[in-house]
Every structure is written in C-alpha cells, then in structure tokens.
C-alpha cells in the first residue's frame, strides 16, 4: 500500500524577490515497508524533497497524499500531529537537546503527544532497541557521536511512527559508528518500518532497497538496488 504519494510537486524559494526552483515536477510513490535512499549531490534538491515528504516544509505546487489522505488542506496543528505520531526524524547533526538526559531527549516526542502515560518505560524501551539501555541517565553531551545518533534513532522510534526519515545519518560519524547506525536502520526496516534515507554517498545509499537520484530538482533515476550492502549490527558497548 502506498504510504507516500506525491504528484507534480514543485518547490520554489523566493529570496528577496528572486525565485529559485528547488524541485520541479516530482512524482513519487513510496510503499509501506520500503527502504528508500534519496541520493544526489549537494544542492540537487534531495534535502528539500525530504523536508516536504516529512512535513518540515510545504510544496509550492502539487499534491501530497500521506497514508492515502490529501494533505493540502491540513493546518499547522494537524501537520505537527503527523510529525509527532507518524514520522520520526534522524538528522546529520543529531540535534539532541543540550544539558538534558538521554532519557528526556528520547521522551520529548511523547511529551508533545501529551501522552504522559508510561513515558519513561517507552523511552527506555526505545533506548534498549538501539543498545543504549545502559546510557539512560547520561547527559546528552556525555556520550560519543555514534551513541548520540543512536539516541536520535531511539527518539525517532519512541512514538512508533510509520516512517523514519534519516538525513545523512552517518555524515558526522566514523565508519564503525556509521555501520552500526546503518545496521539499526536495516533491522528496523526488516521489522517492517518504512525508512527514507537521504545521502550523497553511494555506498551508504546501497544499504537501501531502492535508490532515487535527484539532479537539479528533478528525479534522475529510480531503481532497485541489486547488490544491497548488509551492515552487520555489531553489538558494541563503547
């Protein structure tokens, strides 16, 4: 079943009267349970596409059906609700709250769904699933980069979303930590989670089942991966 379906989407930025087209005439369908990599050089529009798909930004023109519903008329509140319950984000620079415990960071989306029941247990469960049960009470600045990204994945998972968007999740990590992160994403995908990965790096992209390349704001290629890289999720307790 189609989780995401966009038709004829344009994104035009208007900077001080100068219109710049970031995306042009994008048509794309992503089904539930897919692992898709969006690839392209910097400035190609791949991040813009992810932001639109993740409701961090709105398209200028075109139609976006999410879980079968047209989102054009959704207000800010409804979109916030979708981001909160149906979508998880993993960013290149982790974006954890400073001077805040790992547990509180992971529980943040639960706070905004005003779901105060079993918060702590659910946050701990999410942390356990990325192998960080032993770092629950650490502060976000007391752990390594790789661990930070795993905390970010736990935060993305905690509200049990339909899809996880990962924007260059290994970009700030050494290769070993990067492999661990990709391994976790692959496992989550095997467990049925839809994963959308944005990267400029082909090797990273080849951990997905399908690669969409973007060039100059348009879809260039859209193809299956034949020799998929399998990241062994090594159990490491740094």
């Amino acid at each position: 079943m189609a989780l995401i379906e966009i038709k004829k989407v344009d994104k035009i930025y208007n900077n001080e009267g100068v219109a710049t087209s970031a995306l042009h005439d994008i048509n794309l369908t992503i089904n539930e349970g897919e692992f898709v990599a969006i690839m392209g050089p910097s400035g190609s529009g791949k991040s813009t596409l992810m932001h639109i798909l993740g409701f961090l930004d709105r398209p200028t023109n075109g139609e976006y059906l999410f879980e079968g519903k047209n989102t054009e008329k959704f207000d800010d509140e409804k979109l916030a609700d979708i981001r909160n319950r149906r979508i998880g984000f993993v960013f290149q620079s982790f974006n954890l709250l400073p001077r805040t415990s790992v547990l509180d960071n992971v529980a943040l989306p639960l706070l905004y769904s005003k779901n105060l029941k079993n918060q702590e247990e659910r946050a701990k469960e999410a942390l356990a699933s990325v192998g960080l049960a032993h770092r629950v009470n650490f502060m976000s600045n007391q752990i390594s980069g790789g661990q930070k990204q795993r905390v970010a994945i736990a935060r993305a998972l905690v509200n049990n979303p339909a899809v996880i968007f990962a924007d260059e999740p290994t970009g700030n990590l050494d290769s070993k930590s990067g492999t661990v992160v990709m391994g976790i994403l692959q496992r989550l995908n095997n467990e049925g989670k839809t994963i959308i990965l944005v990267t400029h790096d082909r090797t990273t992209a080849e951990h997905a089942d399908r690669i969409i390349t973007i060039r100059d704001g348009e879809i260039n290629t859209d193809e299956k991966v034949h020799n998929k890289h399998i990241a062994k999720e090594v159990k490491i307790d740094e």
């Binding site: 993740g54 961090l56 800010d76 509140e77 916030a80 609700d81 981001r83 909160n84 319950r85 984000f89 974006n95 709250l97 943040l108 989306p109 905004y112 769904s113 935060r155 509200n159």
Partner: peptide, 10 residues
Amino acid sequence: LKKALGAKNR
C-alpha cells in the same frame, strides 16, 4: 527541532 518532533505552535 521541537516542531519537527511534533510540538505545536501553542
């Protein structure tokens, strides 16, 4: 970040 995680404007 908070908005991305689902915080409403309110």
